[in-house]
Amino acid sequence: MRKQVPLLLTFCAGMIPIVALFVPERHVSTVSTTLDSWLIIVAGFALLLGVVNVVQMNTNKIRRKTSGWPYAVVLLAGLAIMGTFGFAGAFGGFGGIATRLDGTSTPFDWLYQNAFLPLQGTMFALLAFFMASASYRAFRARNVEATILLIAALIVMFGRIPFGEMVTKWFPLTTEWIMAKPNMAAQRGIMIGAGLGAASMALRVIVGIERSYLGLGKGE
């Protein structure tokens, strides 16, 4: 019973959007869009569960003084400060969460502009560094396939910057061709296979034979 009820719910929740895709009847679409709304609500509550977990885990870390506990202090402080200003701002406290009408920053906006934004930008910018080290390691002409990959990579890299066009206009043109034809053909091949795989997985979940995501070893 403990397993049957969730599987029955899974079946219903999975079938309703599929039926709604083909049946425009008002009642069916209402049920389907209501399910969408439920998903948003459930996700909201799950986020609350996540926050509780973060607080519990990190409080325990600090209490037990496990390795790296100062990081937990920073994390909880960040959560408390940003959370307080955000929560209060949503109800109009501290002038809201965006810029005030006179152009001055609210505390939330100030933190967003001066802490959140540069930290986010820094993390994303790390990609450039990691991409450089990874491509230095990966692009070696070890065999024919690797050589083709290397040549394509060099053409695309050259074609995407103005220097390429300064050398010859064929660089950007060849780049576009590589991106739009061989790259796209390969991507579509993977996407079609992955799409069918996803549909098959979804079907297995809906009809209840795929249960390994529930941690159960046996499919039946």
């Binding site: 450089a132 230095y136 692009f139 002409a141 910057i161």
Partner: peptide, 24 residues
Amino acid sequence: GMDVQSIVHLIMIAFILFGNVVYF
């Protein structure tokens, strides 16, 4: 911003070519 991207691209191309020259 494209100035930065272009120069970094050139540096990466240089490293890739350097790696291959050393490899061969």
